[in-house]
Structure formats: structure tokens, C-alpha cells
Measured scan of single mutants.
Amino acid sequence: TDVTFHVNGRNLHLKGADEELLRRIEELIRRGADIEELEKAVKEWEK
């Protein structure tokens, strides 16, 4: 799945995201995470 999140005026584009990653990103956004936290979560998922 390709999806782009718009967070605090910045874009986080995910290519090939699975349901697990999407749920994790949505949860972080609900908690008020900043873009750096979201990018870190994506990097951890990519490993």
C-alpha cells in the first residue's frame, strides 16, 4: 500500500506499507507524535 500522511505541514510518504505499519503510524499520530517519531517508526519497520 502506498499512502501519504500529512503531519504538521510535512508529508510522510510510505511505499509498500503493510497493515501493521499503518496501524502503528495512526496510533502515533493519535498520541500527537511529531514527524521525526513517525520517520523513526518507519525506519524500524523497514529493517
Score class of each variant (00 low, 15 high):
H6P: 03
E46F: 09
R10G: 15
E46V: 11
K43L: 12
L22T: 07
K40C: 05
E46T: 13
A33S: 09
E27M: 12
W45K: 04
A17D: 04
V7N: 03
K47R: 12
I25A: 02
R31S: 12
E46G: 13
E27T: 11
E19A: 14
K43E: 13
R24F: 13
H13I: 14
H6S: 09
D34M: 09
V3L: 06
R10K: 15
E37V: 11
L12P: 00
N11T: 15
V3P: 03
D2I: 08
T4A: 04
G32T: 02
K47T: 13
A41R: 07
I25M: 08
R23H: 10
R30G: 12
E19G: 11
I29P: 00
K47M: 13
E46H: 11
G16K: 07
V3K: 11
D2R: 03
R23T: 12
A17S: 04
L21Y: 01
D34L: 08
R24V: 09
K47S: 08
R31M: 11
K15R: 08
V7T: 03
K43S: 14
H13D: 04
G16D: 11
E27C: 13
E27L: 13
E39S: 06
T4L: 05
E27G: 12
E20A: 14
V42Q: 03
K15N: 06
F5Y: 11
F5H: 03
E27Y: 13
G16Q: 09
L22G: 01
E19P: 14
R24E: 10
K47V: 12
G32H: 04
T4Q: 03
T4S: 07
E19N: 13
G32E: 05
R31L: 13
H13W: 03
R24K: 09
G16N: 14
E36W: 08
I29L: 07
F5R: 01
R23M: 08
F5K: 02
L28A: 07
N11A: 14
D34R: 07
I29W: 07
R23I: 08
K43N: 12
N11K: 14
F5E: 02
L21Q: 03
R23V: 09
D2M: 05
E27F: 12
G9M: 02
A41N: 07
W45A: 06
F5L: 10
T4E: 06
R23A: 11
L22M: 07
R31V: 09
T4V: 14
E19L: 11
E36D: 12
E19C: 05
N8Q: 05
D18Q: 07
D18F: 02
K40I: 14
D34P: 05
L22P: 00
E27P: 01
R31E: 13
V3T: 05
G9L: 03
K47Q: 12
R30A: 13
W45D: 04
I25V: 09
W45E: 04
H13E: 10
E39I: 14
